[in-house]
Amino acid sequence: MSRPLLCVRDLAIQFGGVRAVDGATFDVMPGEVFTIIGPNGAGKSTIFNLVSRIYDATAGTIVFDGHDITRMPVHRIAAQGIARTFQNNELFEYATVLQNLLVGRHRHRRTGLLAHVLFTPGARREEEHHRRKVEEVIDFLDLQHYRDQSIAGLPYGVRKKVELGRALAAEPKLLLLDEPSSGLNVEETEEMSFWISDIKKLLGITVVMIEHDMSLVNDVSDRVLALNYGKVIAVGTPSEVQAHPEVVRAYLGSEDTA
C-alpha cells in the first residue's frame, strides 16, 4: 500500500470546556472513499473544519500529501489540493452557477492583479482555459441547463450539485463532502452515489465524506470511521464498522432509522 494522502494524528479541539474532537487519529489512502459516521454532535463536521483549517486545532497534527498543514492559513489549503463542500451549502448566493464554479478554479490562476486590471492576452487565455475546465464539470454533473442562473433561485438539490461542482472545478486531490445526501430525495441521493463513485473511478480523486444515509455509505465507501463524543471508536470496512459493538451502542435505538 502506498503512502497515506491524509494523516491525522491525535487531533483535538476544545470549545470552552467541551472537547469536540478528542485525540482523533486516522489515515486516508489515495484513491479511496473514506466515510466518517457518527451520531449528531459527535464532532464529524468539526473534523472537516479542522482539516480545512477553519478551526484551529488545540492539539495534534494534520499532514496532507507530505506537508504539515496543521497551522496553515485557510486560503492556502485549496492550493494544497483540498476542496470541500459544506453541510448547509455555502454557495455564492448572488452569482450565477458559472461564476460559482469559476471561483472553484481560483487556486489555479496564474495571472496577477495587474494582468486582470488590463485584461492582458495572458489573462484572457487563462480565462478561456478556466471556462473549458468548468464546462467539463458542467457536463459531468449535467448542469448545462442552470449555467447562467443565479443561485438564489435554484432548488436545493441543484445547489448541492453546484457545490459539488465548485469543489470539483478546483481539481483537488482530496475532496471533503459534508453530508452530500442531506436534504436530497431518493433519486437525487442515488444520483449522488453514482457521482461519488465516478469521482473516485473516473477522476481518481480521494474522497472523505460525512454521511448519515447508511445505504449511500455502504454503496460507495471503501472504509468507514465511526466517531462518538469526539473519539474514534472504530475504523474498517462498512460492514465491520457497523457490526462493531461500540458503534451499535453509540447508535442504540437509532441505527435502524439512520
Binding site: I54, I77, A78, T111, A115, F119
Partner: peptide, 23 residues
C-alpha cells in the same frame, strides 16, 4: 470579469467558502 473580481464576489457572499476555495 477576471478572477480578482470573482474573488471579491465570493467574499461578499460567503467568506468561509471563499477562503476554502483559496481566496
Amino acid at each position: 470579469r477576471s478572477p480578482t473580481g470573482r474573488a471579491m464576489m465570493a467574499i461578499r457572499d460567503s467568506e468561509t467558502a471563499a477562503a476554502s476555495m483559496g481566496v
